[in-house]
Design a protein around this nucleic acid. Structure first.
Lengths: 338, 338
DNA sequence: TTGAAAGCGATACCAT
DNA sequence: ATGGTATCGCTTTCAA
């Protein structure tokens, strides 16, 4: 193994000069710099990460904590992680994945205590989340993906559910729909005050009232079978429903399949909008679903930028914390039937 | 910050005794052990990771290198990553994600050279893959997810495409089908000798011959639109086709939608089998697709076990390297129409 | 603009 | 079964 001392010797300078040349926080004569670079190239030197972390007391690692969700990372989670990793790397950090669910908060504390990460990204945040307090008391900088009940004072980024749902409702209202269904996440998540569920519900009801629509809100487990049941419930509770918004990927295809079975044609008899989803999923249906796409990549980047700012990096001047889903037009929405 | 020295003082033993007690490779009296543990608890001590890595010359990190695929990690990739992270953690390692595609092999070498990881997991391996040689010459232990052309001598785990495809073909043959289509990955991947594409094609043709079936093999880009085209091509080339196997998640729904449009009913007129897929995707169709599920979790575990063995951990005695996809019965297959 | 040297907090060798 | 201590390879303060 070749060390910094070897490089110094080879370049005819002192060890410390090499160190300063490498992390650039001290002016170095160009000629010296060149000699050092030549020595590095010649020896194939690479700075040892552990020694660096020990001396600098920084690991240059960011951790992404995410729950072991059934079915693994969804497509959106994956996009997020990848974009975050990319952004971190550009800033000289590595992104580590720590698969811990909400109850394993002490594990997270342990790792943080070992100095395994300089900062933490926390996904799937609930309105009241024990992990948030655990992190806060441990003293590491951290950024939430999602929001607690009272987000002020904590660093976070999130999907703008209010904006997204409102957009979707307006889209349908503009098409003349008067009775609109909403297929949300599970009732369990609603009871547990999972942020997206609660915010979407409230936004849906508020937007419907604003536009004088009749809202039909149903919760729904994450499965096609449950989706069928949810669609049925909507049809029973409000037979005049002409549009359904779904925020539940697995349920969406249950909804469409029940409609087809009932000879309710999309979009002629019923418009369907999938929100907080991916284009891949939307493209799986025929016609392609009108969708509002989860901004996974954008959030990944924003989240890391937030965290880096907290770590003393460049501040994010008026960079948004909330990102709405963008409309991807599809063939599943149309004017309300007369 | 509290150090090992603090713990030693508090427990009334020497620093080295604490160290040995912690990593357990020297007999320590139970009573001493208890005193040390008490001191640790009292002080809230956690061993510093950087110092540990420096002194032991091991990072206790495993890196998962995966290409920045469009659309992020797919569901299966996510399952794999999560299971691998879990297994690594149980063995005292962390799993880091390094998002690099095939051309960025020197980036991987850099990180390895810095001692950022003790071992590497390489995903999406092509039959000829520059990254493999880069890793081999760098001297880190590594395990491939997938296989190169000549896998002997390298550590790898992979889906057993041959077994999976053969199973699917037999399943259909047993149901009386005589002409069977296969929707593979893209032509590009076939030309580039992407392992799964090539192996699946060959296995399909061989299994069909074995059972005296007429095979119709088509390549297909990863999209529903391409899937429609592929289905059409199959129907044109072999109008008597009564069953289609798809190994292309995005295309599958294009296939089914074209069939529906043509009033070809599943499974009455045409059986459809999705291979190397997830139950989530299968459940999105109505009826649920008969599927062969990608063994993401199993592979994640096996891959880490392989790597740990190469790192001097417990050897994997006759643990398999190849894992076939398991059949998840659905409603999309049935007897061949007469 | 450059150098010397004191740590950083563990591991593991050599003793006892 | 336990202790003393050199060492890992770098960052950073203090001096020149």
């Amino acid at each position: 193994m070749t060390t910094m001392q070897d490089v110094a010797r080879q370049a005819g300078v002192s060890l410390s000069t090499v160190s300063y040349a490498l992390n650039g926080n001290r002016p170095i004569a160009q000629e010296t710099r060149d000699r050092i670079q030549a020595a590095i190239d010649e020896l194939g030197y690479r700075r040892n990460a552990a020694a660096r972390s020990l001396a600098a007391r920084r690991s240059h690692v960011l951790a992404l904590v995410l729950p072991t969700v059934a079915g693994g990372l969804s497509g959106t989670l994956g996009e997020f992680a990848e974009s975050a990793a990319q952004t971190a790397r550009d800033a000289g950090y590595h992104l580590v994945i720590w698969p811990f669910d909400r109850r394993e908060h002490d594990e997270v504390r342990d790792l943080v205590g070992q100095g395994q990460a300089d900062g933490v990204l926390l996904m799937e945040v609930a309105l009241d989340d024990a992990r948030v307090e655990a992190l806060a008391s441990s003293g590491v900088p951290f950024t939430l993906i999602g929001r607690t009940r009272d987000p002020e004072g904590t660093s976070y980024v999130d999907i703008d559910f209010e904006r997204t749902i409102t957009d979707a409702v307006e889209h349908l209202a503009d098409l003349g729909h008067r009775t609109v269904g909403f297929v949300n996440h599970s009732q369990r998540s609603e009871v547990e005050l999972y942020g997206p569920t609660v915010r979407a519900r409230d936004a849906f009801l508020a937007a419907a009232e604003e536009r004088h629509l009749a809202p039909v809100h149903v919760t729904c487990d994450e499965s096609p079978v449950a989706g069928r049941r949810a669609a049925l419930e909507i049809l029973v509770r409000a037979p005049r429903t002409t549009a359904i918004i779904t925020m539940n990927e697995s349920a969406t295809f249950g909804v469409t399949s029940l409609l087809r079975e009932r000879r309710i044609e999309i979009p002629r008899d019923m418009s369907v909008v999938a929100v907080v989803t991916s284009s891949e999923v939307g493209a799986m249906y025929d016609p392609p679903l009108t969708s509002y796409l989860a901004p996974g990549r954008t959030l990944g980047r924003y989240a890391v930028e937030e965290l880096l700012a907290a770590l003393g990096g460049p501040p994010r001047r008026d960079a948004p914390r909330l990102v709405a889903c963008a409309l991807a037009p599809g063939g599943s929405t149309g004017p309300a039937p007369s």
